[in-house]
Design a protein around this nucleic acid. Structure first.
Length: 351
DNA sequence: AGCCTTTGACCAGCG
DNA sequence: TCGCTGGTCAAAGGC
């Protein structure tokens, strides 16, 4: 109720033509019914998934931009570590040492600061730590990088790529995909930009709502690509910093070719090109990770004036699976950076 | 001119 | 069955 505001100046009259299908994406998206998971088949599992995420993470291109991210995985001292199936559920990118994120045992060995330090250093390349929500509930002690990141970020404020991880290829051939959420925890920049994450895709915000558990409104974004079903939810902290990003679905297209690299400068060129190539091939095997693996810092994730945002036409997936993948990305900075649910009493009220 | 963001309302699922 | 919450739609406005 409160959230749903009561009166608005816009008296929205609905002719109520026809009951809209739950997920039906209007004209823009063709099938709106379910999130495809074609890629799902290809994905071996979280591990592979993660691994594929950062295939070539360490790339010079990153330097300029991604500063933040990462760290999310560092949890408070006593991480529950529900004993995941395997010691380290996630394959980290070459450049990133696992220890920075998790200890082999599942516990976090390093202290915040340490981790931070390492992470920071490495974060530049690969920011993520993925956690399967289902498996763990890592309380991300946020803050960590944020401060740090913020510094970096500040320099390139407008560029802040925030977190990326477009859509994981899918999470694996999981059986219970229903609500499986892979959460990747990493911190986000202290930046407060509207564009939550520039993963190279263009997103359109289609909604915002104050969720109960969260203090702040959660924003809903859709990939603007024609028939791309990918959506993402972005939660922010009081500062406006992104605390969590949940990707849902997989891109059935490649990243938009052109992306202005204003500040970040280096992002796409090389990667883009190569990524596209890889994409094609990779897609068959991995789904759509390619993008995931690359972090591009571009400031215009969404409103990129330059390229034609829509209509690349790349839809080939047969969207036919109901598996919805949700990938969580946490960027926290809020003190509570709790991964899954933070119990925040006050449901932020929207002004 | 077109796209994106904002924002209230509607709808469905769940407890 | 009712109420709550989350998710999505769609009009209006802005860039």
């Amino acid at each position: 109720m409160a959230a749903h505001g009561a009166g608005d100046g816009v008296a929205r009259q609905q002719p109520a033509p026809a009951p809209r299908p739950t997920l039906s994406l209007p004209p823009r998206s063709a099938d709106g019914s379910s999130f495809f998971a074609s890629a799902a088949e290809a994905s071996p599992g979280p591990l592979a998934l993660a691994g594929s995420l950062f295939p070539d993470a360490p790339s010079p291109s990153f330097q300029g931009s991604f500063t933040q991210l990462l760290v999310g995985a560092m949890g408070p001292p006593a991480a529950p570590a529900p004993a995941p199936p395997s010691p380290s559920p996630f394959a980290l990118p070459p450049g990133l040492s696992p220890t920075a994120l998790f200890s082999p045992t599942g516990n976090f060995e390093i202290s915040h600061q340490q981790a931070l330090a390492q992470v920071t250093a490495q974060a530049v390349h690969s920011p993520y730590s993925m956690v399967k929500e289902a498996d763990y509930s890592l309380p991300f002690s946020s803050m960590t990088t944020s401060a740090l990141a913020s510094q970096h970020v500040n320099s390139s404020a407008s560029v802040t790529p925030t977190q990326e991880i477009p859509t994981l290829p899918s999470h694996t051939g999981n059986n219970n995909i229903e609500s499986t959420e892979v959460s990747q925890g990493f911190q986000t920049p202290a930046l407060t930009i509207d564009k939550p994450a520039d993963d190279g895709y263009n997103w359109r915000k289609y909604g915002q709502k104050a969720v109960k558990g969260g203090d702040y409104p959660r924003s809903y974004y859709k990939c603007t690509h024609l028939s791309c079903p990918v959506k993402k939810k972005v939660e922010r902290s009081s500062d406006g910093q992104i605390t969590q990003i949940i990707y849902r679905g997989q891109h059935n297209h490649q990243r938009p070719p052109k992306r202005r690299s204003k500040d970040g400068g280096s992002l796409l060129n090389e990667e883009d090109v190569s990524s596209e190539k890889e994409d094609a091939s990779a897609r068959s095997e991995q789904g759509s990770q390619d993008h995931s693996g690359k972090f591009e810092a571009s400031n215009d994730g969404i409103a990129g004036p330059s390229s034609s945002r829509r209509g690349d036409g790349g839809d080939q997936l047969s969207a036919s699976s109901d598996s919805e993948d949700e990938v969580k990305v946490e960027g926290g900075d809020a003190g509570d950076g709790n991964a899954n649910k933070r119990h925040v009493p006050a449901p932020a009220q929207r002004i």
